[in-house]
Design a protein around this nucleic acid. Structure first.
Length: 646
RNA sequence: GCCGGUGUAGCUCAGAUGGUAGAGCAGCUGACUUGUAAUCAGCAGGUCGGGGGUUCGAUUCCCUUCGCCGGCUCCA
């Protein structure tokens, strides 16, 4: 089976030629993005950016914000204020009297007044006890906590804590800052929104009020960013999902439980079909397993207790049995593997399933299709020998890159997600963590993939490689994941018999390259702006007759298309011709075939694509053939650089 | 779950400092039969998210609850 898989994978390369060129780009370490900006304003700027002028300006603006806030709310306590990707923020504790968005204009005006005064930023240092005394005088409990921590961890410079003074405002801060407030360019910043934020990001600590501001090097750039953000809203998958009848959500069904409309279901089906073919070529075997399962299984797997918080509460079925909606398919697949004795000769065993899974996400984190409570996952588990792990992992990553390349999802980064010793979210087995993390790191290094390591991001049962994608709003989510599991083989007593007749433990890879339908399609909708390639499009061809005279011709073609399994519709409305064209375009249908007297007489169609302006007249037979090629080769004809295969 | 915002016809939005609401698009009907992004006319659509309170009277004020949006936490 192993040899067979090799052949299959090289065939996969042949079938999807884009794979090779994409791989090269990735191997060179390029991190290419679709847009010039990301809209994320939550991630903290990295260390190497600290020296830039923009960083200093944003950092100084956060001080200006704090100073202005203290003018109207002298009792507010300061927490952290930092530069972020598109601006800055500052966290405050306003006690029992919250601040609202109506206050932002006032604060912004006060900041501008401070800017006009060209107040210098002056750095000073104090020993810890002096610093604490100073902070205590101002009631700055958060800063005091942090000052003590800096001292304990030895981060205080020469045992001193640094402060920056700007006029009457003094803040414990490591800098760097502008020389003076006047260096902030005119109209280059804007207070954006207010949100909550836990102190130190810990939900057991106080909820603070965070004020976000946008800031750029010039007023023009700020304006450009705001316009870009407005344009991006037009591509929001929730808006397009509604307009294109892809999916709905209904409070009576339940939040986070999307209902896929006929159009959206076609997109799911097409992805699923592609996955089936790819997995067949990759030597996978399909299985089907149930969505509800006894608690016992999840105790064995460790989902209870490690994952219980993210699961729907259990259902008591009778006095002895509790059932759960499954949050993952893995335990079921493990049971299939364990159902009989396995020989090393049949490894790797690759079991795949597009499986429905259910996770009880916190209400506030739900968002369109991006974060839901019921989802369908492109799941699979690969059971292999230790010797096969690297090769299998490599094949999985290759499959990811093929999918991403083909779908033109370029805006991603690879994250090596490691455990965190200080957290109880992970299975306690230091040696195995070290060992498996080294294996995964090695695979990535050998592939030449550029990646970033992050601890505390692993699955509870092992390290993983995640593909992180940012959506339009700059929200980054894990789309695909590949996990190396050293825990479940033990828990499920999974074995295989080796060449010596000895029982051995296999490794398990968990992988989901196409993510869940929900998350993957939410990204695709936004990436394509709702304009899908012919192979995925709910309606592949819109037949537009110029007048009723050609309706019989249109009906003849529609029937031929239907018999060729093409999703085509005739526009039979009594609208004007212009309106029919417009309707087809606003529905983002990839192909419009115009039928008039000329076309009828010559047995042809005039082909107008969504992606390109130029149109051409071709015989129906040729057009159908080209359409089938578009479909069967899954060509990305929603991009203008893809020509019709005529 | 927490913080801030928001909720008027299927969609996008008007509106009145408390006297039960309008437009465009979509829908339906009719006329028009059109060659590349909106033909014309008519009709129909809402107990102004739900519940409670204040009031002679609430969509408008207050409370509460639900949904949605942006964050935080969490995560595919």
């Amino acid at each position: 089976m192993c040899v067979c898989a090799w052949i299959s994978l090289s065939r996969a390369v042949f079938v999807f030629p884009f794979f090779i060129s994409f791989r090269k780009r990735t191997l060179s370490g390029a991190y290419f993005t679709a847009g010039s900006y990301s809209m994320n304003n939550s991630s903290v700027a990295t260390a190497e950016k600290k020296e830039t002028a923009l960083y200093r300006m944003r950092h100084s603006l956060s001080h200006l914000l704090a100073a202005a806030v203290l003018e109207i709310r002298p009792d507010a306590k300061l927490a952290f204020g930092l530069p972020v990707e598109n601006g800055f923020y500052y966290d405050f504790d306003f006690g029992d009297t919250p601040i609202g968005e109506a206050d932002l204009t006032d604060i912004e005006n006060r900041m501008n007044a401070l800017i006009k005064k060209r107040i210098p930023f002056v750095r000073s240092e104090m020993p810890l006890d002096e610093a604490l005394a100073h902070l205590e005088k101002g009631g700055e409990v958060y800063k005091m906590e942090y000052a003590r921590e800096l001292e304990e961890k030895g981060f205080a410079e020469n045992g001193n804590i640094s402060f920056y003074t700007m006029g009457d405002f003094i803040d414990m801060c490591e800098g760097p800052h502008l020389e003076h407030t006047g260096e902030v360019p005119k109209k280059s910043f804007k207070l954006d929104r207010i949100s909550g934020s836990y102190w130190r990001g810990d939900e057991t600590r106080p909820m603070l009020t965070r004020i976000y501001g946008l800031a750029f090097e010039s007023g023009a750039e700020l304006k450009e960013y705001l316009e870009m953000r407005k344009r991006a809203m037009e591509r929001d998958h929730r808006k397009l999902g509604d307009e294109l009848d892809l999916f709905i959500q209904d409070p009576e069904v339940g939040v986070g439980l999307p209902l896929w409309m006929p159009n959206g279901t076609i997109i799911r089906d097409e992805l699923e079909k592609w996955a089936r073919e790819t997995e067949f070529l990759g030597g996978y075997q399909r299985v089907s397993t149930p969505s509800v399962t006894r608690k016992e299984l999840y105790i064995r797997s460790g989902h209870v207790p490690y994952y219980e918080d993210s699961m729907y509460p259990s259902m008591p079925v009778d006095e002895h049995d509790d059932y759960y909606l499954r949050p993952m398919c893995c335990p079921h697949h493990h049971k299939i593997y364990a159902s009989r004795l396995r020989s090393y000769r049949e490894l790797p065993v690759r079991l795949c399933e597009y499986g429905d899974v259910f996770r009880y996400e916190k209400h506030g984190s739900l968002s369109g299709l991006l974060r839901v409570r019921a989802m369908c996952m492109n799941d699979a588990h690969i059971y292999c020998t230790p010797e096969q792990v690297e090769e299998e992992f490599r094949a999985v990553i290759d499959m990811y890159l093929m999918y991403y390349g083909h779908l033109r999802m370029g805006n991603f980064r690879v994250r090596l997600s490691l455990h965190d010793k200080s957290s109880d979210k992970f299975v306690d087995n230091y040696e195995e963590w070290e060992r498996t993390e080294a294996i995964v790191r090695n695979v990535l290094d050998n592939l030449g993939v550029t990646y970033e390591e992050e601890s505390g991001e692993a699955a509870f049962y092992g390290p993983k490689v995640d593909i992180q994608v940012k959506n339009l709003m700059g929200r980054e989510e894990t789309v695909s994941t590949c996990q190396l599991d050293f825990v479940m083989p033990e828990r499920f007593d999974l074995t295989y018999v080796d060449a010596q007749g000895e029982k051995q433990r296999p490794f398990i890879l968990h992988r989901a390259p196409l993510s869940t339908h929900e998350r993957m399609i939410s990204f695709l909708i936004e990436l394509y702006g709702g304009a899908f390639p012919t192979w995925m499009a709910p309606e592949q061809v819109r037949l537009v007759p110029v007048n009723d005279e050609v309706m019989p011709y249109a009906q003849e073609l529609e029937e031929k298309l239907r018999n060729a399994f093409v999703r085509a519709e005739i526009d039979t409305s009594s609208e004007s011709f212009n309106k029919k064209i417009r309707n087809a375009i606003t529905r983002k249908i990839p192909n419009i075939w115009i039928l008039g007297k000329q076309e009828q007489e010559s047995g042809s169609v005039t082909w107008r694509r969504y992606a390109v302006k130029e149109q051409q007249s071709v015989s129906f037979d040729r057009a159908l053939e080209a359409l089938e090629t578009l479909r069967d080769k899954r060509m990305m004809d929603n991009f203008a650089d893809v020509d019709l295969p005529l």
